[in-house]
């Protein structure tokens, strides 16, 4: 790998979940906000926690833990809502949100600061594209194509 590639930094956001964390590009995130009125969606899967009114849009809030086979989480005093821009190919109004266990943390990652995690140590689900290690901690990178397939089957 070249020195230039080593120096190439990607501004990312670490989203703490229950028992693990996600790592996503900051450019995919529209806003981080405190939880507010959550409205249930009858007939929805357990991982769809409800819908929030945000910037005049109805934005679904999901439990990523619930999507990868763990117990769906619920809003706690320390929770934050991470609102994502629509996944590629969707309507410009199709924002969605992930419930974070606590305040997300910015991470500036580069090839020099990141290691690939042992695949046997990450959840066996198509929703995870890869696992990485930063400063000794494992972070999961979601597969947005798989997310789109799960969201809009």
């Amino acid at each position: 790998m070249t020195a230039a590639a080593d120096d190439e930094r990607i501004h990312s956001l670490e989203i703490p979940l229950i028992g693990t964390s996600l790592l996503v590009p900051s450019a995919a995130v529209a806003e981080v906000t405190n939880p507010f009125d959550l409205h249930p969606v009858p007939g929805a899967p357990a991982w769809l926690l409800g819908v929030i009114g945000w910037r005049a849009q109805a934005v679904p809030l999901i439990s990523f833990e619930g999507m990868i086979g763990q117990a769906a989480t619920s809003v706690q005093p320390s929770s934050k809502i991470v609102v994502f821009y629509p996944i590629t190919g969707r309507r410009e109004s199709d924002f969605y949100a992930i419930l974070s266990a606590s305040e997300p943390r910015p991470q500036s990652v580069s090839a020099a600061t990141i290691e690939t995690e042992d695949p046997t140590r990450i959840p066996d689900t198509p929703l995870i594209a890869a696992g990485v290690r930063i400063k000794g901690r494992t972070l999961l990178i979601p597969d947005f194509d798989a997310l789109r397939a799960a969201f809009y089957p």
Partner: peptide
């Protein structure tokens, strides 16, 4: 102020989502 909204996940019926 009605906006398009698609519930996420598999629709509960073969006719689609409830909303």
């Amino acid at each position: 102020h009605v906006v398009p909204f698609t519930p996420l996940g598999t629709p509960p019926t073969r006719f689609g989502h409830l909303f």
